[in-house]
Nucleic acid binder design. Structure first.
Lengths: 358, 358
DNA sequence: CCCAATAATCCAATCGATTGGATTATTGGG
DNA sequence: CCCAATAATCCAATCGATTGGATTATTGGG
């Protein structure tokens, strides 16, 4: 008989094994409700500090919640209130220092306003961007901040989210779509300034590394370059413009072309990454910077101050842009309105040795 | 009478105004259910491709869902199934290139396995880390990947999440806590290798920029340095070890000290950031690298190949680490088990000019 | 001590999807 | 054509928190 007992005991133990690995049941308001014999609605109100609950009861409930280790189930709360207190951020790549600063700004503001942030990388892929937008909609984020990918030309994929009533704010790469707000820097003016700076430094034949022209941002940067060239009495040549995605390899490839062109004495790249690729190759080939060829970039990546010579570039208020973008979005979420608004921030020309011929 | 009609019309229009800004009601399975006179449970099963629904009905439901623009409400689904298909990632800073590569690896694996990723930055703050962990628990993420902050010494704040049954995997900065898995590189061995390389290159008095010694990772790196020094017949001096958070400014500050020490001929920094800060200052002061002082770092930041001379450093399999970490976590989520496992990856010494005296 | 006014608490429905079990419809062998 | 076996569909409860309205308890003036 003792053996039988032992057997039963072992059997029960064996059966219970898989259960030990299951997620423990979390404490809910109903547990508190039962423990105190107080209706769960009152518990809910107490936990939300409602004035409909007496101080005495509130304290009892809070104490019990603490004691049981209660943790509000946000999923249930969100479902009921139809809010998630979460904003989605779509970013081309977080590894670009510009974007990671913007994100820090966004997080800063969001946290102060009680919002969570979901960061998603599109890796400059349109397909990925569409998928992300879908996920964000499914997750019912309260708003979306987006910097579109270099491939994005159609914006229909944003429709479902807008129809749902979620606000969207474009940052860095603005685009005129429906009544969405946007925040960016004055790319045209910045570009004009850098180009003029190169000209004043003595450049006569300046090539331009342009980004994808389907993106307004890069179109504006190119236009700034074009106008500065023309307004300063130089001749604009389309053959001096190289379009690419501005990766480091693109810069290297363009540098090769430039060397074969022989008369080039200046480079203005739409970002630092490509500028640095070009500089590395030019230096490797014995071209003197800035004496033979002056170089300027855009973004003020940390790397631009480390390379030799230091790279002249444009510094953008990245952190601030993130803060403002988040503020604009949260404003719209709270007001449940969508009054279009386009903010444009000013930038700063950082002059280093790469551009100073004299 | 016509005026009255007009008045009524305007009144109705005015009343409806605020409604226009409200979020539109989304289509639910019940809308599909009503439209087709099919029970919502069948609709749900059809949308989940259950075998309990006939092909014909399934098609009808899918068509109607498409037609109405149905979008599954993930919140409701998650609440019911007690799963979120989301993993949380806590990272000190996304702007560090090492971490952004790890994240890319994590996202890659996660996406392939159907998981969403929430990225949260602790900015090396313990307080922030605790808050984030709380948010992740409240949001009931299915698992957490964490690289602890430089301030983290106590791990009690992880308890509630572990009690809840959520798995945690440490990456990059492992720590022996309960039965949590971890993945990291062989910091000790890497450190030993770099240090020995500096010695073989002719360095006799090598200082070490150490990270916070409360973090195992930095302890291991220091130990590798110490042992390499001793095993190669040099004298270890505690005064040659400078502890800091390894920011660029720290590197600059240490460089100042080094110059005043006069006999130093080598620097091994626990990260590239501080190494580069030091290099910049040393170069500025006219110290020749590597002839006067050889320098080596850790991480292989992009910047390390751009600075002159190129910085000798350790390349870690960052992207791979992210992939493996995510895989380990997802494995645990699926199996609902937590068998502790510590993976250690190997690294690669990248020799550039900053360390080659001869 | 009574009763109206106010405060505190409870009831019951709801958010949208999922799921075990019950019921109804269909199939096919005899 | 009948009926057992199987397929397809429906019923009803559930996940956990919230909320408008109903009910009960308390307060305080007379």
């Amino acid at each position: 008989m003792d053996y039988w007992d032992l057997f039963l005991y072992l059997l029960l133990w064996y059966i219970s094994l898989p259960l030990q690995n299951l997620k423990k049941q979390k404490i809910t308001i109903h547990d508190i409700s039962k423990a105190l014999k107080i209706d769960s609605s009152t518990v809910s109100r107490a936990l939300n500090d409602s004035s409909r609950v007496s101080l005495k009861t509130k304290q009892k409930i809070l104490d019990k919640a603490e004691e049981l280790g209660y943790q509000r189930n946000i999923l249930a709360s969100n479902l009921r209130t139809n809010k998630t207190n979460t904003i989605g951020v779509i970013v081309p790549r977080i590894s670009r220092s510009f974007f990671s600063s913007v994100i820090s700004g966004i997080e800063d503001t969001a946290q102060n306003s009680g919002y969570n942030v979901i960061i998603c990388q599109s890796f400059e892929s349109f397909e990925r961007e569409k998928k992300i937008m879908n996920t964000l909609l499914s997750n019912r984020v309260d708003g979306v901040l987006i910097s579109i990918s270099m491939q994005t030309t159609s914006f229909d994929y944003l429709k479902p989210y807008l129809d749902y009533g979620g606000p969207i704010v474009f940052y860095d790469r603005p685009c005129s779509f429906e009544n969405c707000s946007s925040i960016s820097v004055n790319d045209y003016k910045a570009s004009y300034t850098v180009t003029e700076h190169l000209i004043q430094s003595g450049c006569k034949n300046i090539v331009h590394f342009a980004g994808p022209q389907i993106i307004d941002l890069y179109k504006n940067r190119k236009q700034g370059y074009v106008d500065a060239i023309i307004n300063n009495g130089l001749e604009f040549k389309e053959s001096y413009c190289f379009e690419s995605k501005l990766a480091e390899e693109d810069g290297v490839a363009f540098a090769k072309k430039i060397i074969s062109m022989e008369n080039i004495d200046g480079v203005y790249s739409s970002n630092d990454t490509a500028a640095i690729g070009a500089m590395q190759y030019l230096k490797f080939m014995g071209v003197k910077i800035p004496e033979d060829i002056a170089v300027a970039g855009f973004n003020n990546d940390p790397i631009s101050s480390v390379i030799e010579p230091g790279l002249t570039t444009i510094n953008q208020p990245d952190f601030e842009m993130g803060k403002i973008a988040a503020n604009m979005l949260i404003e719209q979420i709270k007001n449940e309105t969508t009054n279009k608004e386009s903010k444009v921030l000013d930038v700063e020309l950082i002059i280093r040795n790469s551009s100073q011929k004299n």
